[in-house]
């Protein structure tokens, strides 16, 4: 039971991750609803927030750097990015004639 043998006394990582996630979520909400910035800027800012939060969760909650299967994890994430790009960019490309 590798993960359990060095159990922390208090789950600091989870608390910090949780709080930072909340901050980032509400910041994104504020930027989108009441910052008054132009639409393009809003989109860029909330995407940046989303990427930060996703990586935060990978390290704080999912312990991506603690496992011994680094190659599998790297491959997994690279493939996830590929699929995300295919789904999003592909859909925009395919559907642009009705947009």
């Amino acid at each position: 039971m590798g993960a359990n043998s060095h159990r922390e006394s208090f789950p600091w990582k989870h608390i910090i991750g949780f709080l930072l996630s909340l901050v980032l979520t509400f910041a994104a909400l504020w930027v989108a609803l009441s910052s008054g910035l132009p639409l393009k800027a809003v989109i860029v800012i909330i995407v940046v927030f989303a990427v930060i939060q996703a990586s935060l969760q990978l390290f704080m909650f999912m312990h991506v750097n603690e496992s011994d299967s680094g190659r599998i994890q790297t491959f997994n994430m690279a493939y996830s990015f590929f699929i995300a790009i295919v789904v999003v960019a592909g859909s925009i490309w395919v559907m642009q004639f009705v947009l």
């Binding site: 789904v87 592909g90 859909s91 395919v94 559907m95 009705v98």
Partner: peptide, 9 residues
């Protein structure tokens, strides 16, 4: 048609 698009993805 976005449904068709998502459905087939």
């Amino acid at each position: 048609m976005l449904w068709a698009n998502l459905f087939w993805i």
